[in-house]
Design a protein around this nucleic acid. Structure first.
Lengths: 240, 240
DNA sequence: TAGCCTGACCGGTATGGACCAGGTCGATCT
DNA sequence: AGATCGACCTGGTCCATACCGGTCAGGCTA
């Protein structure tokens, strides 16, 4: 009865996937609160069983795109909220409505020291990309960042000029971090940090260390030193 | 066929919930990788349809407790990982293997000032519980915390002594925070902060402000000032 | 004995029917 | 005019059945 089977026997489109993607395309342009097609309507339109439609909608509800209200219908949910908490400096500054800038102070291949090697889960002496940048928001100096990247995962990464956003460059290689481990502390600026940040030695700074993982592979280890008067970390966390 | 219907006609136990909770109790003592009952086995045991069993298992899979492997079976998933990221000071210090202690410096009902009122989403002048504590880990002074609680949600909260852990006390009232908004910055210690933290005025401190939400209601607004040499924030974040 | 094959078993997909509880809204009754 | 009632919608639950493709162990063949 399914003539598709005869034409494309393998990898035929699953019905619940067809319905799901159809509904997704319908609702993605709709404002929150708009009504999605009712389950029985989709049953009639696609000629499938209601369980199949429910499976399709279940997936969209689980994604947070739809909201079910018994007795009323299914509706487009409120915007995915603070979607994507894993942001880089560039993205974070842009999100705050400022212009991010970056000045490369150092970009070279080094041999991993013991600390960096452990953090990147490689052996000491293995090649690592060391990239130090002075970062600004609306011209004002905000921080210095030392990023260490696994050279094996990113062959020839900094050869052809330096990208604007590290995370966007990683994303282009399919290595956008999916998990990060951060530590944040307050400290005094060292003499060198004070010089590049144009503050006084001993002034308070915010230290931020990050280990970024993409698909189980550690792609970035960074240490950032922020001027205390120009940066605050904002976080939104939710339990389940 | 369901004699429960005769005894408790209303709010009868939903079958998929029965199956779900039964399986949950079976697996909660099992190590990761252990096999869960197969779907058809549960069908036979509970005398329900397979769709019902699948609905039950779907919920547990969505919770991350089970993992399905086509052709093999359903298995207990790896430990819930970094379960519960929303922790209070007490819980966090315990997690680090230290003994948390707390000394109440102030606990009274005040009229909300404009800043606290806005953060708690109440009107200025409304009653708020203001609770200031000096917090230690293994005897060493770590921070001073000012917590502001919505008095309406917590009638008579600090009347009968002060709890050890605020979050545990909130959990007992069904008000454990499910979402938080945090901001973290570095700063210089004020004269008063320096005195209670036993540091010098102007020393670096880590400031942590939190707005905690439980079920859409703002239950806690706090500002904490940490000694920079005794506390680091650790975070694990994941996209999706 | 080494390798293939079969069949039991697993989850994944899909059908189509049924009834329930809760919300909407118009028509009817007071 | 206002309250009420009931069709009619919605999603929520649950049933019995069927076939697919993948896994794996045990038996059969070469």
């Amino acid at each position: 009865m399914d003539q598709v089977d005869l034409v494309v026997p393998r990898q035929r489109a699953l019905k619940h996937v067809q319905v799901r993607e159809h509904v997704r395309s319908l609702i993605e342009a709709q404002p929150p609160g708009a009504a999605a097609p009712s389950e029985r309507e989709l049953v009639a339109r696609f000629g499938v069983a209601r369980m199949t439609v429910r499976q399709a909608l279940d997936a969209l509800v689980a994604e947070g795109l739809l909201e079910r209200i018994p007795g009323r219908g299914t509706f487009v949910a409120q915007p995915p909220k603070a979607a994507g908490r894993l942001t880089s400096f560039t993205e974070e500054i842009r999100r705050r409505g400022m212009l991010p800038e970056s000045q490369t102070l150092l970009a070279r291949v080094e041999q991993a020291g013991p600390g960096v090697a452990r953090a990147l889960d490689i052996s000491p002496g293995d090649p690592v990309l060391h990239w130090r940048r002075l970062r600004r928001a609306d011209q004002a100096i905000v921080c210095v960042e030392d990023a260490y990247l696994n050279e094996v995962l990113l062959p020839g990464f900094l050869q052809h000029g330096t990208p604007t956003s590290l995370y966007e460059a990683l994303a282009a290689r399919g290595l956008r971090p999916t998990e990060v481990e951060d530590s944040i502390s307050a400290d005094r600026a060292s003499a060198e940090e004070a010089t590049v940040l144009e503050i006084a030695e001993g002034d308070p700074v915010l230290r931020h260390a990050r280990r970024a993982v993409s698909d189980g592979r550690i792609v970035e280890v960074s240490r950032t030193c922020y001027r205390h008067d120009r940066f605050t970390v904002y976080l939104q966390l939710a339990d389940h």
